[in-house]
Design a protein around this nucleic acid. Structure first.
Lengths: 374, 374
DNA sequence: AACGTTCACGTGAACGTTCACGACCCCCGC
DNA sequence: GCGGGGGTCGTGAACGTTCACGTGAACGTT
């Protein structure tokens, strides 16, 4: 702990200030008051104090100031205290740029999240944060709101400000590549052969197969699906669903799957209403994710149908929210935190030039959790 | 679009490479290397190419390279293309440190969140992100997991790497101040007179009063409270609760409030069980937040009590999750996104030397949302 | 033919910090 | 009296960019 003589800049004998000191600094800085409170300053735009200012006012060299603020050895305790006091007076804070320039190793990663309101993503973000922290990285977060243009804005930033990027993207590879000039990148939820970047994700097919098998096992043969909002590409979950129902010999085709306008409860509710109209005979429905599945449950309730007796509902994600609804949601649980961790591990390998994770190491397999809804 | 001759470095006539070019680059990277890397190439850890390397290999000056990569004018298209090609070849990416050193204005803010799994915080984070983005700031996120030590770790990082800090903290002011050497800081959820930093938050008292009044209006006179985990300080919500019940003349004292071990459904469930034992006669309960309130509902269901007939439950936060449970949760809704926005506005004022927001501008007032549970 | 203009490009100098040295002082031992 | 050594402190020189200039050459214009 350092005790300080407040309000006074100490100049012990033997270290007289050079004639230039005080004056030149104040000349730069205007009046005397460091914080200046309300008055004459050009509205809070004072030049930030540098290590040089501190050195000059304290009557020492830059190096000594550096020694003081980084508390290294080779400095007299009295000097250190004095320097620190001056630093406080001037509100000196070392420039992270200058510092980063000379000592390398500070890594910052960019994380692009489609929707912070969807509980799925904060959890993978938590995984990313964990793993990044263990590596000493810092991560800056960007909410793209599932907007292609905002994704590109993010990349335009990150290509300048980040050493690595992970995230969810709707844009195709080539567009992405054009906006992130060479930064190592890992895209989530895109098959390893569907991307030129690093990739991790969930094994959608494995999950969907388990889900459909479970429903069939329970006697369902007329199963619908509420897909995500992928208006363009069909998406692996839908593909896997269609493959699975075909494999089980069900009389279900693509007219049994309707896309949800958005990845939310409201979206799922709307899509379910639509599906009810199209296929009133269905007895079970598979949701693209838990939010949509919950929406399906609400739509069923609105029609006076009972879950799971009149309609079995199966989700995908394993949000803890699923345990709270009535009845509790059966779902394919994903280890979202692990997913996030994998993403940073993958991008770390990429930027280190190591060979990427593949197969089961990069693709987490959903686990069927049977609760009340199916 | 730029078409490139892959695998070959083009040297158009009139721009012959100086004899030094290719060779000197490798010479720089190995022999002459001042850093003296002992191993010839420690597996993908080659020194990152600088603007100088690109300039040399392309046979132009640094400035021209700069012009090319930042696509400014004053450059011949052919030269630009050639430089870009070399840059790609060398995997050149400008150093954000060197760049930040010379052009100021890149602000990064640190955000400390206690628990990403609690849906409350992602939403205020979304607000922070929004407002930061509008200012051109980038924000790096840290999950403190409600751990005092981790809070300090965050500050130790941010004091070096960030220009501003906002977040939730359990640590007292003086401890915080010691770890964030002079960085402008805004703490959330701490009264303006309880902190020396900037502060924004919610007007807990106003919220609690509305809630208690609502319960009393519905005829309840034996009201309990499930507090947060503040083992040390009582916390403003509890204080406000006790004041409100006293004002309404209820025979309720501090034995009617039990702290939840954690801010979660499970915590609320446990706390509610405890409260049932202590005060079996209660007819209504006020939750510290929605998660805890939902826990109370589950505890009630487990005892065969019906909500709201046997036990009215009131939450605090207004999570969208509250609409999903059965019965839907009555709560005091908080504009969490606005809260986040206010935080960055406040810290922006702080770092600009402007006077901070106060009163109704800095303290968002909860709004009573009556649903089924109370 | 002399002169201005534009275009394409290069040259120090800054930005703020740390690192590798070297200088100085004081005290000790012989 | 001299060498040596530990403790303090200062001095260029990096680090990788951008900025404000300066320099030619090519091309008109009068």
């Amino acid at each position: 702990m350092v005790t300080v003589t407040a309000g006074r800049v100490p100049f012990p004998a033997g270290h007289p200030p050079t004639p230039a000191t005080v004056h030149s600094v104040w000349a730069d800085n205007q009046e005397h008051d460091p914080r200046g409170e309300r008055t004459p300053r050009p509205e809070g735009t004072r030049r930030r104090a540098t290590i040089h200012d501190v050195a000059q006012l304290a009557g020492v060299s830059r190096q000594t100031v550096s020694r003081a603020v980084n508390d290294k050895g080779e400095i007299d305790p009295a000097t250190k205290e004095r320097v620190l006091e001056v630093a406080r007076l001037l509100e000196y804070r070392p420039s992270r740029f200058a510092r980063g320039l000379v000592r390398k190793g500070a890594v910052t990663a960019g994380l692009v999240i489609p929707d912070l309101m969807n509980p799925f993503f904060p959890e993978v973000a938590a995984g990313v944060l964990e793993a990044a922290e263990e590596r000493g990285w810092q991560v800056v977060v960007w909410d793209s709101r599932t907007d292609e243009n905002r994704e590109l804005q993010a990349l335009d930033k990150f290509s300048h400000q980040a050493d690595a990027v992970v995230g969810y993207f709707k844009n195709p590879d080539d567009v992405l590549a054009r906006h992130l000039g060479g930064v190592p990148t890992v895209v989530l939820e895109r098959g390893p052969h569907q991307t030129r970047f690093g990739a991790v994700g969930i094994d959608a097919a494995a999950g969907v197969e388990q889900g459909v098998a479970h429903l069939v096992r329970a006697g369902h043969r007329r199963i619908g699906m509420l897909d995500g909002d992928r208006s363009d590409a069909p998406g692996p979950r839908r593909e896997a669903f269609l493959a699975a129902v075909r494999q089980h010999g069900l009389a279900v085709d693509r007219s049994w799957v309707v896309p949800s306008p958005e990845h939310s409860v409201a979206g799922g509710e709307a899509a379910m209403a639509q599906l009810f109209d199209a296929r009133p005979e269905l007895t079970a429905v598979f949701g693209f994710n838990d939010l949509i599945a919950v929406g399906a449950m609400r739509a069923a309730a609105r029609r006076g149908l009972r879950v799971p007796d009149d309609l079995a509902v199966l989700g995908f994600d394993g949000l803890s929210l699923g345990e709270l609804v009535e009845p509790a949601l059966s779902t394919l649980h994903i280890d979202k935190r692990r997913l996030g961790r994998l993403a940073v591990e993958q991008v770390a390998r990429l930027s280190a030039g190591q060979e990427p994770l593949t197969g089961a190491d990069a693709w987490v397999i959903p686990e069927l959790v049977v609760r009340a809804s199916a």
